[in-house]
Design a binder for these strands. Structure first.
Length: 274
DNA sequence: AAGAAGTCCTGGGCGC
DNA sequence: TGCGCCCAGGACTTCT
């Protein structure tokens, strides 16, 4: 499940490889993955474009192109964007191939077909539905303790569900939400507005540290995730609670519990997170 | 208007 | 060995 650290790692791994290259050819195997515009306009609009730079906003990878266009990619759960030297036969579930001017290729692969690609005009990026309502970047200056405190105060939903709400904060998914709450020693079922000032301060730290560690470890390869060069990350070895149901909490030794919360599996330590 | 629930997808794991 | 069932979850839509 590519979340902020995984998308950031993909961005960094692709940057030096494709910046400055031109997209010579776009092979759209499965048009279903294109969110906008139409499949024909998407392929036609991309062809001939030069890659200027790569950015990221929340879980969106943003490839900035020469003609004031941006290729926005959301990998959802099982999407992969992998650079290959060229001539590599496409893996199963490959839905698009972008052929670059040096003969290399970007392969977009997605087992469950939840991910989406879109071609957006640069000047309309801020108004684009996917990005328009995104909350602050948790690792940027705009995400402050004060923002967190104020937002939590007015929300009556459970804290775990709020952490997954991209309009509240951009980039957290199920793995890093659970890890952030464990770091902060907060029970995921607590109502957001009920957190004490100390808990809010711990949560602020927990979010930033969980994400920073994920980036330092080049992402969590729990199931499908690989970076832009097809390499797995190592953050799965550093997870404290996610996926560790029944295993001893690394802080207190009690078994990690799993509950369903908002339709999502949620892992926590009942002793450390009260 | 906030919050919850349903929907899309396929492979892997499990019970029988 | 194989069939059927459940589970994984991000963002969007629909509902209450």
């Amino acid at each position: 499940m590519p979340e902020l650290p995984e998308v950031e790692t993909i961005k960094r791994s692709l940057e030096s490889r494709i910046t400055g290259l031109t997209l010579n050819e776009v092979i759209l195997i499965n048009p279903q993955i294109v969110r906008s515009p139409s499949a024909g306009d998407f392929s036609g609009g991309l062809s001939g474009q030069k890659v200027k730079s790569i950015g990221r906003r929340g879980k969106y990878l943003l490839i900035h192109l020469s003609g004031e266009l941006i290729l926005a990619i959301h990998l959802r759960m099982t999407g992969r964007l992998v650079y290959t030297g060229g001539g590599t036969p496409p893996a199963k579930h490959t839905h698009a191939i972008l052929r670059l001017s040096n003969g290399s290729e970007l392969h977009y692969t997605d087992v469950r077909k939840f991910g989406r690609l879109a071609l957006i005009s640069s000047d309309r990026l801020e108004d684009w539905p996917g990005l328009k309502n995104l909350g602050p970047e948790p690792l940027d200056q705009g995400f402050t303790r004060d923002y967190l405190k104020k937002e939590l105060k007015r929300r009556r939903t459970r804290i775990k569900s709020l952490l997954l709400d991209q309009t509240f904060i951009a980039g957290l998914g199920n793995i890093y939400a659970d890890e952030a709450l464990h770091r902060a020693r907060i029970n995921p079922e607590k109502t957001a507005s009920s957190l004490t000032p100390r808990e809010v301060a711990r949560l602020y730290q927990g979010i930033r540290e969980a994400l920073a560690e994920g980036i330092a470890n080049r992402g969590t390869s729990f199931r499908d995730y690989v970076d832009g060069l097809g390499e797995a990350g190592s953050n799965q070895q550093s997870l404290q609670v996610y996926g560790r149901q029944g295993k001893p909490c690394l802080c207190c030794g009690l078994p990690v519990e799993r509950v369903r919360l908002g339709g999502r599996s949620t892992y926590f330590c009942p002793k450390c997170q009260r």
